[in-house]
Design a protein around this nucleic acid. Structure first.
Lengths: 382, 382
DNA sequence: TTAATTTCTGCAAACGCTTTCATTCATTTG
DNA sequence: CAAATGAATGAAAGCGTTTGCAGAAATTAA
């Protein structure tokens, strides 16, 4: 029995693609080194003599060798992928964060695998299982409100993970994000400082959205702290149409409301749109604030006073933390980020009591954004 | 030398997590079958006796065994992940598509790995390489405009792939999407049918966005086909601020423009905002159409006439095609999808010549959206 | 009953890489 | 100059699955 020309081990099943893929063995052979050395030339170059290192690199080029991710993952127990589970990518804030995180990880040779839960805990748990099974080196979750099995699974798996978008000082797990309650408290105080005493809250459903719930809580707390009457809180499905209807209910039920704090920009846009329809002047008759600072916020009529999350920083820190954990170092865990308060045209002094009840304010009311208001705004942003 | 209690092979290096993970061998042992059978019970249940199948399933439950993705991938040459490269997730249309695709793949046990190119071909090529190396079973690209090396790489790798968001009858590769040129041609015809003879085009940069370029081309073609003078085409960076400026340039340079066809909703929103600022009544003095039908399109003042892509269908088909290819069947390749034309308030008849030059039209001009206009709109949508 | 199928199962060989350990070789050091 | 140290390399043992093949068991046919 003669030795075959190439001493390749014979495949015991057909490869999917016709042309045989180059393997590390091929690289090694062409470079005249062992597989071990070839591998090291790739992964730990400092362990290999420069001359050899270059030779291997050249051969890799020539053969256009591409390492086999799965084999590498199996041998090294590192998949170089990170899982991210967001409620939905349809929300700009999550999409943008995913994008930034993906870019950041990319620079470190990691990939981002995205799954969405649609605000459903069971579904989220299922996704975590699936990701775990697929093999990931780390995981990012949104917020703290998850199925108990999920926490347990994460813990027993020993997988590095972090939660984002909500800081909680009492969280037993690492989290990176703003304190939504605090931020909205400050925003509400901004309104109160402007002179508003009757503030309504318009929010999308808080049931499975702890961030929104925290914001509502912040508004409530601030209003209570200033000895003002408990605010009307209207909760509607997360669509513009519902937001408009919500605004209507708010002004109907409480004719005296002079400011509406919306827990996100979507709600605020709905409010603004409905005000236009109802002939309510913003901010002369009603002040409106949002949360998120979506691109359009600057271009609505009037432009929207809102709160901007430090998404880039959040994603950066999430990436850093995870990579640190993966590589054995352990980075600073929970981090509280600060949002920025953006004052635009949709907020101003409350109307004079006399005017408050008039359905349409006069056109003559001048600019309401007084210097002192601006100053207060700034302080609220800190 | 006595046999150790468990005949487990001893690990030659420390596992990352403390508690040993369950492996298929454990499942097999507990179920009293071989690894092979255990594996089959999981992957090809029809090959094992029901009784055994159930036993294995039970053991898996009890041990909370989770298969090792990398090992599985190495042995089966299937990673169960699909790569998607979009220009950016910051664009709602791409984010939404990614979301839908991810959900669809999920149901079939696949994961979606997302990367973004930022409209940069070199970067895109790099991402493809990275994904290929990571190991994916299929890939989705946006459009046809890619680096030549990318096509080559894809071809030699033999990876199933498909392009989306733009149908091209002459593409040598499978693509699934609408014909952007055709769709915008129809939209332009809608304006012409309303009586507009002087139509401006406002678009974001077309340099590395073939979809926008195709839309502009569609508008040009339609206008030429109707023997109207060549349109002014203003191209601006993709921000609302620039869009507003673009609108201004458009109405300044050509005072007679009575309609602006925007190649996406972002541009249209900018146009609408600027019209408000300039005191131009829409649609009385100027008609505006967009493309994408973003959520807010329905709630702008006036609401925006625009075009909606069949994103769900596109994603569904992309998923189906890829899975078919992966499993060896080959599904229908290129598919042309149809968008829907959504007529709202931002389009109407052009102003009477006398009024056309007046900077502010009378408030008294009634509803312009005549029944016949509506009828035409419908036909344009087919 | 035996032979011929068909259905299940187990053995063991991949899958393509990483990494431990031992070895070789070139340098230092005493 | 021998011994000790350090730097580079290679051999080979995994990593945890899947799957071709062959044999065993169960079923059917004759």
């Amino acid at each position: 029995m003669t030795q075959s020309q190439q001493d390749e081990p014979k495949r015991h099943r057909a490869r999917r693609s016709v042309k045989r893929k180059m393997r590390l063995a091929d690289v090694a052979r062409h470079a005249g080194v062992s597989e071990a050395t070839a591998s090291r030339a790739i992964n730990r170059p400092e362990l290999v003599r420069q001359e050899v290192r270059e030779r291997v690199a050249r051969v890799i080029q020539e053969l256009s060798y591409v390492a086999h991710g799965a084999a590498r993952a199996l041998a090294s127990d590192r998949t170089h992928s990170i899982g991210l589970i967001v409620p939905t990518l349809r929300t700009a804030v999550f999409a943008e964060s995913a994008e930034i995180l993906q870019q950041a990880l990319n620079r470190s040779g990691y990939h981002l695998i995205i799954a969405s839960s649609e605000y459903d805990k069971a579904r989220e748990f299922h996704e975590v299982r699936a990701l775990l099974q697929h093999g990931i080196d780390g995981m990012v979750l949104v917020g703290h409100d998850h199925a108990p099995e999920l926490w347990q699974l994460l813990e027993t798996s020993g997988l590095p993970f972090v939660t984002a978008f909500q800081y909680a000082s009492d969280s037993p797990y690492p989290c990176i994000g703003v304190d939504n309650c605090q931020e909205f408290y400050d925003a509400t105080r901004f309104l109160i400082n402007l002179g508003h005493t009757n503030i309504g809250v318009l929010t999308a459903e808080t049931h499975s959205n702890e961030r929104l719930a925290a914001r509502v809580e912040g508004a409530r707390a601030c209003i209570a702290d200033h000895d003002l009457p408990k605010p009307d809180v209207i909760e509607v499905p997360s669509t513009l149409t519902d937001a408009r209807q919500g605004l209507r209910r708010l002004v109907e039920r409480k004719p005296h409301v002079t400011a509406v704090a919306c827990t996100n920009d979507l709600m605020a846009f709905g409010a603004l749109a409905e005000c236009r329809t109802l002939g309510i002047e913003v901010p002369e008759q009603l002040s409106v604030i949002g949360f998120d600072d979506l691109d359009i916020a600057e271009h609505t009529q009037p432009s929207l006073t809102t709160i901007r999350l430090p998404l880039a920083e959040q994603s950066r820190r999430v990436g850093e933390y995870l990579l640190a954990r993966i590589e054995g170092r352990d980075g600073a865990s929970s981090t509280k980020l600060k949002a920025s308060f953006i004052v635009r045209e949709s907020t101003g002094r409350p109307p004079e009591p006399a005017k408050a009840d008039a359905q349409r304010g006069g056109q003559d009311s001048g600019p309401v954004q007084t210097p002192s208001a601006k100053r207060r705004a700034r302080s609220a942003a800190e």
